[in-house]
């Protein structure tokens, strides 16, 4: 089947999609956007987190056809050209990236969290990121990165809208 949707602001059309393919497979294998990672394919790890019409979802659990005419945002769309998103920069600065396989999903989830809640408490952050497994960091530096990004966004006035 044919699938047309908007990914990171650009309309994408792909053909010959098998109906059982997930949005994750289509992004990775048909649209050349492998930034969203495939680690479990059962919604348990969050490595494939993308925004679907603005909501964080596991792309592995979205049937390709369900994305028809929808807006999809992936990690590849976060940076503004050469300039990293403040959340991306904070993950680097805080040392929150080791193997990096969980990073794309965590970045998308964190960006969403900070849009909704400018200065989340640690408890809020933990509940919001509980769906993103990380095996390398023990999460401490991920929390550091979220706090750092929240501080920087608040200082620059581009943080949460709540």
């Amino acid at each position: 089947m044919r699938l047309i949707c908007t990914v990171n602001g650009t309309q994408q059309q792909v053909d010959d999609v098998w109906e059982g393919e997930s949005l994750l497979y289509v992004l990775r294998e048909r649209m050349g956007l492998p930034g969203s990672k495939n680690a479990c394919e059962q919604g348990e790890c969050g490595s494939c987190t993308v925004l679907l019409d603005g909501l964080p979802v596991c792309a592995c659990l979205v049937a390709a056809g369900q994305a028809e005419a929808r807006q999809v945002e992936t990690v590849e769309g976060m940076a503004d050209g050469g300039a990293l998103d403040p959340v991306q920069q904070a993950f680097l600065d805080a040392g929150a990236v080791q193997c990096g396989f969980c990073t794309p999903g965590l970045l998308v989830s964190t960006r969403d969290l900070l849009q909704r809640s400018g200065r989340p408490s640690d408890a809020e952050t933990r509940e919001a990121l509980a769906g993103n497994l990380c095996r390398c960091t023990g999460y401490e530096k991920i929390l550091d990165a979220v706090r750092l990004a929240a501080d920087r966004l608040a200082q620059s006035g581009t943080g949460g809208h709540r």
Binding site: G43, P56, V57, C58, S109, A128, A130, G131
Partner: peptide, 9 residues
């Protein structure tokens, strides 16, 4: 239930 991602879907 699950995670925020799962609860959104």
């Amino acid at each position: 239930i699950g995670s925020p991602q799962i609860r959104n879907r």
